[in-house]
Design a protein around this nucleic acid. Sequence first.
DNA 1: TCTGGGGTCCTCGGGCCC
DNA 2: TCTGGGGCCCGAGGACCC
Length: 390
Amino acid sequence: MDAFYASVELLRYPQLKGLPVVIGGGRRREDDLLARLRTERPEQEWSAATLDRIPVEFFPRLQGYTGRGVITTATYAARQFGVGSAMGLMKAAKLCPQAILLPVDFEQYRHYSRTFKAIITDIAPLMEDRGVDEVYIDFTAVPGGQREGGRVLARLIQKSIFQATGLTCSVGIAPNKLIAKMASEFNKPNGIAVVMEDDLQSKIWPLPCRKINGIGPKADAKLQQHGIHSIAQLAACDPLWLARHFGPRTGAWLHAAAHGRDERPLVIDSEPVSMSRETTFERDLHAVRDRAELGAIFTRLCEQVAADLQRKGYVGKTIGIKLRFDDFQIVTRDLTIEQPTADARLIRQHAGQCLKRAPLQKRLRLLGVRVGNLQSSSQPPEQAREASLF
DNA sequence: TCTGGGGTCCTCGGGCCC
DNA sequence: TCTGGGGCCCGAGGACCC
């Protein structure tokens, strides 16, 4: 398989290119920015088409930010100051007060995400959806896909996406998904990078292990403890030693990944496994003293999950809860029921039973409700099997 | 000092059955 | 009857990803 990895950069204000920008905080709408512009700068017409005319000084700064939000993503200029994804905004405000703070607008992202994926499947139909801003593409059978090692196709995709959305797109091209994803990092943003099998030693091995998709902070720290910092060092490790320290599966995977081996096929249509809703409270709540408030939030979460399931046509058999306490300890409880459901009252009832099994001495910071073991509500697998038997 | 929300997958232990 | 092991499911927790 020849794999493409493409990801779009969601920052779509050309005037902010090269500036430190973080996206994060509460769930405000980007429309709020337009609303403010219309009030404060009424002399001009403001719409999604005129975003590039918003003066840089109009954007809010991170300085003086207070609250619980975290950074969803940050520009490279902002990362120079040490800020990055998942960092608390208050900490980021200390590191880089001059950074521009843009609201997270998931509705906007979903809109751009759909447009970007539609453009790609028009050009290359074999696409794996990897989230809001990422896809893998198998371009082996795309006419002209092999020209200049895939660069011609990559440029066509970038141009089409930019024309339709104004977004830039980074592309990595390689023999498999693992390397294609790493390649896409080489020339961000809006770059194209090709990594062939022969390039492994020169382009991949010098990178730190953390660059491998799947090695997170924990595995990286463990590798570092053993003096393994680069992918080259990981590749040189004895597979048996890796299996002993990381378990047989992870050990074998680490060894294969360091050698650029990845047999995973493209997953074109995948079904969801679970759906959940969770929320972090404005202030930590106590199970007894804030019982009424917690109960209302709990019910709302159940209703939201039920609505999500119904809208997307799923029912689920495993109902679960998630609690995060004030000390950040996470506890989950779940239970599997006989008949799959998408009914808010049933979900509330069974989630309530889970809650009774959880320790509730400490104050709560977050509450979540999850429904897993999903199946399509239109045609449950059990019925389908019966139908085929008779 | 602070650490979101929505997911997936893996591991491990316990219970149950053969 | 006892014991061990394997397979499977479930529940809990953890790592990781975007």
